[in-house]
Computed example of a mutant assay.
Amino acid sequence: HIQFDETQTTHLTDFAKQNHVTVNTVIQGAWALLLSRYLNRDTVCFGATTSGRPTDMNGSNTCLGMFINTIPVITEIDPAQSLTTWLQSIQNANVRSRESEFTPLYDIQKQAGQHLELNKEGLFDTLMVFENYPISEALQSEERQDTSF
């Protein structure tokens, strides 16, 4: 579990804006590079969680229960490619993957089948969860709920 302070968050946000990508994409890129080096592979696959809440469903943000899903992020590390181009390709793939965001993980694994030979032990090398919300606001909200009997 990694938590960034305000200065680190500002640096990440500025870097993402300069490269026309989201902070999530920057973090996914860093994770992909780390996995690539650790696993000694040019192509890596990790699971990324999505909120899974249908934006077109009226009141989905007020529904109770978990809608979370995990989708694969597959990326190739190409040293000849610029960092900006590579990060933008990850972001573009993430946008395209939104079409499969509601597909159950067991169907994704089934569809990947033998076409995905990145990891002989499973579909993902790792799972990455990116949470983008102000912790202090969430804690304050939780404290208010606890004291408002």
Results as ranks from 00 to 15, higher is better:
S97Y: 03
V95Y: 11
T49W: 02
Q111V: 12
L39K: 12
R98K: 13
S36Q: 08
A112Y: 03
C63T: 13
H115R: 14
W31H: 09
W86K: 04
G59E: 03
N58V: 15
E99N: 06
W86P: 03
E121Y: 15
N40F: 06
M57P: 04
I71C: 01
K120G: 00
S60Y: 08
Q114H: 14
K110C: 11
G65M: 07
R53T: 06
E101Y: 08
V26S: 03
A93Y: 00
I77V: 11
T55C: 08
R98I: 07
G47I: 01
Y38K: 13
G113I: 05
P54W: 08
H115Q: 15
A32V: 07
P79M: 10
G59V: 06
Q114F: 13
N58H: 14
Q109T: 09
Q81T: 13
L39R: 12
E99C: 00
L33C: 13
Q88W: 02
Y106K: 13
K110V: 10
L123D: 03
D56L: 11
G113L: 12
P79Q: 11
N61D: 14
N58T: 14
V44I: 01
N119Q: 03
L87G: 03
A32T: 03
F46W: 04
Q28C: 14
Q109G: 09
Y38E: 12
M66L: 14
S60I: 11
P79L: 11
I74W: 02
S89E: 06
H115V: 12
L105K: 07
A112V: 07
R96T: 10
I27N: 06
C63V: 14
D78C: 09
L35W: 00
I27P: 04
T84G: 08
D107S: 03
L64D: 10
Y106P: 00
C63H: 13
S89Q: 10
G122M: 02
Y106T: 10
T84A: 10
F102G: 05
E117K: 13
L118T: 06
R98E: 05
V26E: 00
Q88N: 02
L105G: 06
L39C: 01
V73S: 05
T85Y: 09
Q81Y: 08
T85N: 11
N92P: 03
L116I: 15
V44Y: 06
M57W: 14
G52A: 04
T103V: 04
V26I: 11
E99Q: 13
G47R: 08
H115E: 13
T55M: 07
F102A: 11
S51T: 15
S51Y: 12
T62I: 13
C45K: 09
W31N: 09
N61T: 15
S51P: 05
M66N: 14
Q88H: 04
S82H: 13
R98F: 05
H115G: 13
Y38P: 02
R37E: 14
Q91A: 06
F46M: 04
Q114A: 15
I77N: 10
N58K: 14
S89M: 02
N69A: 01
H115D: 10
D107G: 00
T103N: 00
F46V: 09
R98W: 00
T75N: 07
G29F: 02
G47W: 06
A30N: 05
T50M: 14
K110R: 15
A48Q: 11
D42I: 10
V26G: 01
A112F: 01
K120M: 00
L34T: 12
T55W: 02
R41E: 11
I77S: 00
Q88G: 03
F67P: 00
I77C: 05
